[in-house]
């Protein structure tokens, strides 16, 4: 009796294993085809893409046009969908702008969460064309910048989470390739040409207006953030005025230290437009000139330190 049951179980498992072997290839092919189609949609024009690289639990494809990397497509997944996984692929251009997003896999409710795959939906619309670093990638209900799909907050949250994962992986990859992810022109005075400069270890750009240098954008770093490295890019006029500051990389506490990325935050507002030579690079509570972020003194201190290091570099190159 037991033997018979074993025989049946054995034959059945063998049959299933057989079908598994048979379908293995078509399944992989179908998945690969889907990714290839999606890559064309989420990236600017390219000749070829690199093999999939595994970065920060996401799959990254580098898009190459004429030997140069023109964008990154990142495959990421959130397990917090309304029913199952939400798997997407996000295309970034080299300056950190989200080019387009395609959904690879979802099982959300038709008419609600499943609208994330429909054309021109608000959810994808709140990401596409935006610069990722300037966004708070949570839905408006949670205080972020993402418009949720009607009556599908959970699906929208999962989608946003997946985009945020993708962005983290993109940053890691872009940094490896020396692409900071910030367009220096918005940190610089008006110019008609921006040149990349060769400097030791840090990125820097020179802005020219009719052959005359009008400013520099310089990277600055600090290792004393709440969770390690904080990298910023600071734009200076030739007279040493701070035009603007952008955060390139940070791992601070969400909702507290991460506010350093927000537009018009206390830190950047107390530096913008000031002449760097007259600024005392320390927080107000410590006798300096910079307003700290609420409840994020350590992060604020690191930010100021990073800006100061950029200023030091600026002094060296602006002779």
């Amino acid at each position: 009796m037991v033997l018979m049951l074993f025989v049946i179980a054995f034959v059945c498992s063998a049959a299933v294993a057989g079908v598994f072997q048979m379908t293995k290839e078509p399944i992989e092919k179908a998945q690969a085809q889907k990714v290839v189609d999606a890559l064309r949609k989420v990236l600017p024009e390219f000749d070829e893409t690199s093999e999939k690289k595994s970065v920060a639990e996401c799959g990254v494809y580098e898009a190459v046009l004429g030997g140069e990397i023109v964008g990154y497509a990142v495959e990421s997944v959130s397990h917090n969908g309304f029913s199952g996984d939400v798997k997407i692929i996000v295309g970034f251009t080299t300056d950190g702008t989200i080019y387009n997003i395609e959904v690879l896999e979802q099982a959300e409710t038709p008419g609600l969460g499943a609208n994330m795959v429909s054309e021109d939906n608000v959810l994808v619309g709140s990401f596409v064309g935006k610069r990722a670093e300037e966004m708070n990638m949570t839905v408006r209900k949670d205080g972020g910048d993402v418009d949720a799909l009607t009556a599908a907050t959970i699906s929208s949250r999962a989608f946003s989470e997946a985009v945020a994962f993708a962005y983290a992986a993109y940053l890691e990859c872009a940094a490896e390739n020396g692409q900071g992810g910030v367009d220096p022109s918005r940190l610089l005075p008006e110019s008609d040409q921006i040149e990349e400069m060769e400097l030791d270890g840090v990125a820097a750009y020179k802005a020219l207006l009719g052959n005359e240098v009008v400013g520099y954008a310089v990277e600055g770093r600090s290792n004393s953030g709440f969770n390690g490295l904080v990298r910023v890019m600071v734009g200076f006029g030739v007279d040493g005025t701070i035009v603007d500051v952008a955060v390139l990389e940070q791992n601070e506490t969400p909702g507290l230290g991460t506010k350093m990325c927000d537009e018009g935050n206390a830190l950047v507002e107390s530096l913008k437009g000031k002449s760097a030579s007259g600024v005392k690079f320390a927080l107000k509570v410590e006798g300096g000139d910079v307003d700290a972020l609420t409840a994020a003194t350590v992060s604020s201190r690191a930010y100021v330190e990073a800006v100061e290091s950029a200023y030091e570099t600026f002094k060296k190159i602006n002779l």
Binding site: C12, F20, T23, P26, A30, G84
Partner: peptide, 25 residues
């Protein structure tokens, strides 16, 4: 055992040939 084997077969076949439906269900 017999039923679950056929279910697994259906699961694999759907994953291979009608992946969108597979994901939705």
């Amino acid at each position: 055992v017999v039923i679950s084997s056929f279910v697994t077969v259906v699961q694999l076949l759907m994953q291979a040939y009608v992946q969108d439906l597979y994901n939705t269900l």
